[in-house]
Each structure stands twice: as C-alpha cells, then as structure tokens.
C-alpha cells in the first residue's frame, strides 16, 4: 500500500467520523425543533384554549348573576360575548385532538356546557328565577362547576403530556450533544494513534535509511535498511542499493 494512500485513508476515516457525528447532531437537533413545534401545536394550543374557556365560563357566571339581580341588558350582553368566546376556544380544542382519549374529554365538555347553557338561555328576568339564590345554587352553580372541572381535566391531560414531552426533549438534547463530545474525544485519540502510525510508516523507515547510508559511508558497512513495508520507502531503499552497486561497478572499472 502506498504511503499517500495510507495517510489519505487515515484522514478520510477521521473526516467520516466527524461528519457522521455532525450529521447525527444535526438530525437530533432537527428532531428537537420538531418536538418543540409539536409541543406548541399539540398541547400548548389546547391549554390556552382551556384557559380561555374557563375565563368565558366565569364571565357567563357573572352574567347570570346580573340577570338574577334584574339587570337584563348588561347580563345578556356579557352572556352573549362570553358564549361566543367559549365556543371559539372550544372549536380550537376540538380541532386539536392530539392525545389519547382527548375526544372523550371534549365530548364531556360539550355535553355539560350544553346543559349549563340551557339553564341561562331561557328568560330569567321577570320570572320566578329572578332574585332566587336557591335556583342559582341548585341549578346553575352545580353545572358551572361541572363544566369547569371537565375543562380542567382536559388542561391537566395536555399539561402532563407537555411535561413528558419536555422530559423527552431533555433526553433529545443530550443525544444531540453527546455525539459531538464523543467525536471530539475520539478525534483526539485518533490523532494520537495517527501520529504513532505516521512515525511507524514514515519516520522509523527514514531513520533506518539515514543510519544505513551513514553506516555505509562512515564505517563501510553493507547498505541494508531492512524496510519491511512495500511502499515508496522500500522503492527508495532498492534505488539506493542500485546506486551503490553502480558506484561500486564504476569504481571497479
């Protein structure tokens, strides 16, 4: 094997090792990017929608209290805007089903919200419900609490999943960084080995050649560098031997 090829192979192996470490880090980082996006798309949207639903629900509760106290106009205005806010948030959650059994949670919210809505949609002002605290606690508040707890359950489901996803992100970050660290350490060991092998295939035979040449002209020893590799240095040894024999022949003539 030629020296050039040996050195080139060494560098190629080093490059391959570093390139693959880089590629793997990039792959893991792109996965982290996707996971972050998924985290936002999958869970964060629903959590925000749940918060909006709870806020809308609380406003509806205030609207009902206004109706009970006889303030029809203010009460209905608040209820109308809160209802449309709730429905738009609910739509976001309904169209963002990403967790197992999430559809069940949505269905439960939908059903209990309809029951709750049926309580405040019919007229309240001017009926027996006006000023009836008893009606509020027995009919309205119970359903309000039920819808709220079901929204909270949906929020918890997504928060738990988000926590798990975040833990997984930590692992992914570790997996993205580690190939780089391992590559650096490996490259250092590789370079030490490379240095040793360069010494073995280049420096050691060259020293042998120098010593043999010196031995020849200083002490008239036979020229034999004993190079065992079959590469350019072996060729050089043979050429020097040829040269010496030609000089001998010339001197003899």
């Amino acid at each position: 094997m030629k020296i050039k090829f040996k050195i080139l192979t060494g560098f190629l192996l080093l490059i391959i090792m570093l390139l693959i470490a880089g590629a793997m880090s990039i792959y893991e980082f792109s996965r982290i990017g996707k996971s972050v996006r998924a985290l936002i798309d999958d869970n964060y949207k629903t959590i925000e929608a749940s918060k909006t639903m709870i806020e809308a629900l609380e406003r509806e509760d205030s609207g009902i209290l206004l109706l009970i106290s006889g303030k029809w106009k203010e009460g209905r205005q608040i209820l109308q805007s809160a209802d449309s806010l709730f429905l738009s948030a609910f739509d976001i959650a309904k169209n963002n089903l990403t967790e197992k059994d999430e559809d069940m949670y949505i269905e439960k919210i939908e059903t209990s919200y309809l029951i709750f809505k049926n309580k405040w949609e019919p007229p309240i002002v001017g009926t027996s419900k006006e000023n009836s605290v008893n009606w509020y606690f027995t009919e309205v508040h119970i359903n309000f609490i039920k819808v709220k707890s079901e929204i909270n359950a949906l929020m918890t489901l997504n928060q738990d999943s988000m926590y798990l996803e975040a833990s997984e992100l930590k692992e992914q970050a570790h997996r993205a960084i580690m190939p780089g660290i391992v590559a650096i350490v490996s490259a250092l060991i590789f370079l030490v080995m490379f240095n040793f092998f360069i010494g073995l295939i280049l420096v050691r035979p060259i020293k042998k050649l120098i010593n043999s040449v010196k031995g020849y002209y200083l002490h008239s020893q036979n020229f034999d560098a004993e190079i065992s590799n079959h590469d350019e240095l072996k060729e050089l040894e043979i050429e020097i031997q040829n040269l010496i024999s030609r000089i001998h022949q010339k001197n003899e003539k």
Partner: peptide, 13 residues
C-alpha cells in the same frame, strides 16, 4: 461506527 473506525485504522498501517 466508532468501533469500526478504530478497528480498521490499525489494520491499514
């Protein structure tokens, strides 16, 4: 890959 690279490397030299 690391094991392979470090395994093959000495075989060349």
């Amino acid at each position: 890959l690391i094991a392979l690279v470090f395994g093959l490397f000495p075989l060349i030299y």
